[in-house]
Design a protein around this nucleic acid. Structure first.
Length: 775
DNA sequence: AGCACGCCGACT
DNA sequence: GTCGGCGTGCTC
């Protein structure tokens, strides 16, 4: 059915459509434009095009005159009569695709929330000739014939395969079907399934809108900062700002004012946040303040809803977009400013799926649109802090003392008053406990133990932080050292004592715990490492009457769901403040504690383990530990913090106990020094190349070849590390090899060339090459 | 990522 | 011969 048309050489201009396909395909494909669509296509439209045997949605990126004597397939239809994305977004996606070296079609698909819902399904029926044919009854062909003879009309392939009793995607079935079609025995029809235009639900209209809440008051230098940015918004100047050392409440107050300024000027705003659930109150405030104009975009918003938001953006009804990563591509008209809150959060750069950095895209978009880009964080990324210090970004800080601890009541329009400043800035007492001397089986040090006892006897709340869920990191055999590893991932499996199971946190595979060592038969199996379950067990043993709550991914119902509606996150507020006070409570949690809304201060925060992964190969780990500890210290309010560690001299841990602003300057000075020494970002631009494949030798061979080619092609000022085994070495049954390029300038072009060279030298089929630019 | 095509070994 | 598995390369 695929209509191959030969375009005559005298065809008038613009008869070929350049279409980006949402597949791992580096090329842009050309399609013939049928007469009925000539003059009706513009870039950014979704097109239904044939690809191989199926039909899929592609994105028109341009029109060209005939390029060769290629025989092209024809566009089947245009899926909308207007472009689904505008030129600005198309160009931005194109930039991102090139910079991050990701396929353009996938980038565009990521940029368009929803609207990728078209799939095709094959239907078959016998031709007249086919009804007469005879075949050996038991052969595949015979079975297909007899099934189809009993049916009338088109039969979907799913039904066909079920009646025959073969797997839907089995090779031989499709093979024989296409042979039969070629021989004229069968007719095939490929139909589109999936809804085209999701029905539009009725939305709030202007009359439903509540009276907007007024803006919160600004304090001290906050107002100066707002005025400064206001000028830039008015003038329309690309200026990256780094708002560092500014607490969340204060940042949000500033954002609200800036957003309001944009709206007054008839400009829109993009506000990126790393995750929805910890920001529910911000979203609520925005909706109350700018009712009806706020659109929320994130991965769990339903297709229909997204489609709706997009059309309301297009109609100009929504001009404030709050969203996660992919919201950076939201097609608002005339944005006046982009805000990336918690700019150091790794989720802007998540490592699965399409690799692009939303913060990088935000800066690029701001540059193109000539608008300020605000990066906000309480403890910014080391790179951005350095850029701030060196003037690449405008660094603005509002150290805590200047902000009020208690936010002014909503709607109070009192002017900024320096006297509202709270004299008693919280200064928790921080103690570092060196665990190196302790018995390996010690979970809670004496100091932590006695502090817990002290606090709960007073009815206070205690938080014990553990960075691993489960009971223990792994189980090993004391006699032969055998450790239980995931069969697919070359990593130890986490032990769950309650469930009596082992689970791989990388691929979710789980297994029973054997009684004896499968290697030597010994029954002396022992747990290694500390997880939340184990701490819980220990705490219940030592404090049998205390109320103990465990809070990690395993205890949160529907932990995968982070939707705004019906979010199942437990908050950390005491269920019943009046009565609970007496008893005290011990909360044992992972970093989920920091991401849950509604935290109330704990009298004691005990960090049971925070540094157990400091040896992992990630140059940003120190920052992560530092940030984590800061967050935990904040949870202690004026209380007490006890940090147990095996690395007491690590700069992240040393710094955090510094009374002046948790050693922020000290940490960054030191960390920037390390980065400079080792040539890590911001002193280089970095690319991580990972080769992954089921075949170990092949994977090693190809990565070594690529390493050699890169080595040859890279010039002075760049450095190639590796290839070396990845971490983990094997993931989901695929062997992994890795190399890192550190360079003083972008190396995308060299990588592209080198990969082409590799392809001419040896086949890379069965190997996935994953490029991570600016990881 | 699909999916077809080609090669090969086994079955009958 | 026909079936089925696997590796390789292409998709306008």
């Amino acid at each position: 059915m695929s209509s191959s048309v030969k375009i005559p050489s005298d065809t008038s201009k613009g008869r070929i459509a350049l279409v980006a396909i949402p597949r791992r395909l580096d090329k842009v494909l050309s399609y013939a434009i049928p007469d009925r669509l000539i003059g009706r296509l513009s870039p950014g439209m979704r097109l239904l095009v044939p690809l191989g045997r199926s039909k899929i949605t592609g994105y028109l990126i341009g029109v060209s005159v005939q390029d060769g004597s290629h025989s092209l397939k024809e566009i089947i239809e245009a899926l909308n009569d207007t472009p689904i994305i505008n030129n600005e977004i198309l160009e931005l996606a194109r930039w991102a695709s090139e910079y991050y070296m990701q396929p353009l079609g996938l980038m565009i698909r990521a940029a368009i929330p929803g609207g990728n819902n078209l799939k095709s399904r094959e239907y078959f029926k016998l031709t007249d000739q086919g009804t007469k044919i005879k075949a050996t009854p038991n052969s595949m062909k015979g079975r297909i014939l007899s099934v189809l003879k009993d049916k009338t009309g088109w039969v979907p392939i799913s039904e066909l395969s079920k009646d025959i009793g073969v797997e839907l995607r089995e090779n031989r079935l499709t093979r024989i079907l296409s042979n039969m079609k070629r021989d004229g025995i069968l007719d095939e029809d490929i139909r589109i399934i999936g809804k085209r235009d999701p029905s539009r639900k009725k939305r709030k209209t202007a009359s439903d809108i509540k009276h907007p809440a007024s803006l919160p008051s600004l304090y001290g230098r906050e107002a100066d900062l707002v005025n400064e940015v206001k000028d830039l918004i008015n003038k329309g100047t690309y200026t990256p700002y780094l708002l560092a050392e500014i607490k969340k409440d204060t940042r949000q107050r500033i954002y609200l004012h800036l957003i309001s300024l944009c709206i007054e000027k008839g400009k829109g705003v993009l506000l990126l946040i790393p995750e929805i659930s910890p920001n529910l109150s911000l979203i609520k405030t925005l909706e109350d303040t700018f009712s009806g104009r706020v659109g929320l975009l994130h991965s769990r918003i339903s297709e229909g809803r997204r489609f709706d938001i997009l059309s309301r953006i297009r109609e100009g009804k929504i001009d404030i977009i709050v969203g996660t990563r992919s919201a950076i591509f939201a097609p608002i008209d005339l944005p006046g400013m982009i805000i990336v809150d918690e700019e150091d959060d790794p989720s802007y750069k998540q490592d699965k799926g399409l690799r692009y950095n939303a913060k990088g895209v935000a800066l690029k978009r701001g540059e193109r649109l000539n608008i300020p880009v605000i990066l906000g964080s309480s403890a910014p990324s080391v790179e951005d802090f350095y850029y701030g210090m060196t003037g690449v970004y405008k660094l603005r800080t509002l150290p805590e003392e200047e902000g009020p601890r208690i936010q002014g009541s909503k709607g109070s329009n009192e002017p900024a008053n320096p006297r509202t400043k709270d004299p008693s800035t919280p200064q928790p007492l921080i103690k570092i406990v060196d665990m190196r001397g302790a018995n390996g089986r010690t979970i809670l040090s004496d100091q932590l133990n006695s502090s817990i006892a002290n606090r709960i006897s007073k009815g206070d709340r205690v938080l014990l932080f553990v960075n691993k869920r489960g009971f223990s990191n792994s189980i090993i055999c004391q006699d032969c050292g055998y450790s239980f590893r995931c069969p697919d991932c070359a990593l130890s499996m986490t032990y769950y004592k309650g469930l009596k199971r082992l689970s791989c946190h990388y691929c979710n595979k789980s297994a029973c715990v054997p009684e004896t060592c499968p290697d030597c038969g010994s029954s002396r199996l022992t747990e290694v490492g500390i997880g939340t379950e184990r701490v819980e067990e220990e705490v219940r043993k030592i404090f049998p009457s205390a109320k103990v709550v465990r809070l990690d991914k395993d205890t949160i119902k529907g932990s995968r769901g982070q939707g705004v509606k019906g979010s199942s996150h437990r908050t950390l507020e005491p269920a019943n403040p009046g009565t609970l006070r007496k008893e005290g409570e011990i909360v044992i949690g992972t970093d989920i504690v920091l991401r849950s809304p509604g935290n109330h201060p704990f009298a004691l925060v005990g960090v049971v383990s925070a540094d157990t992964c400091l040896h992992l190969p990630d140059f940003r780990l120190s920052h992560r530990v530092y940030k984590l500890l800061r967050g935990l210290i904040d949870l202690a309010g004026k209380g007490e913090v006890i940090i147990q560690t095996h690395n007491p001299s690590h700069h992240a841990i040393e710094a955090v106990s510094d009374p002046t602003n948790m050693g922020l300057d000290r940490f960054y000075q030191k960390e920037i020094g390390f980065r400079r020494e080792l040539g890590y970002p911001p002193f280089s631009s970095m690319v991580i190349i990972t080769l992954e494949g089921g075949n170990a030798e092949r994977c090693m061979d190809r990565s070594q070849r690529l390493g050699k080619i890169l080595h040859r092609n890279l010039d002075k000022g760049t450095e190639l590390l590796g290839p070396a085994r990845g971490y983990p070495e094997i993931l989901r049954g695929r062997h992994r090899w890795q190399m890192i390029i550190k360079g003083d300038r972008p190396v995308q072009e060299i990588i592209r060339r080198s990969m082409e060279e590799l392809n001419t030298e040896a086949s890379t089929s069965g190997i996935r090459i994953d490029l991570d630019i600016d990881p």
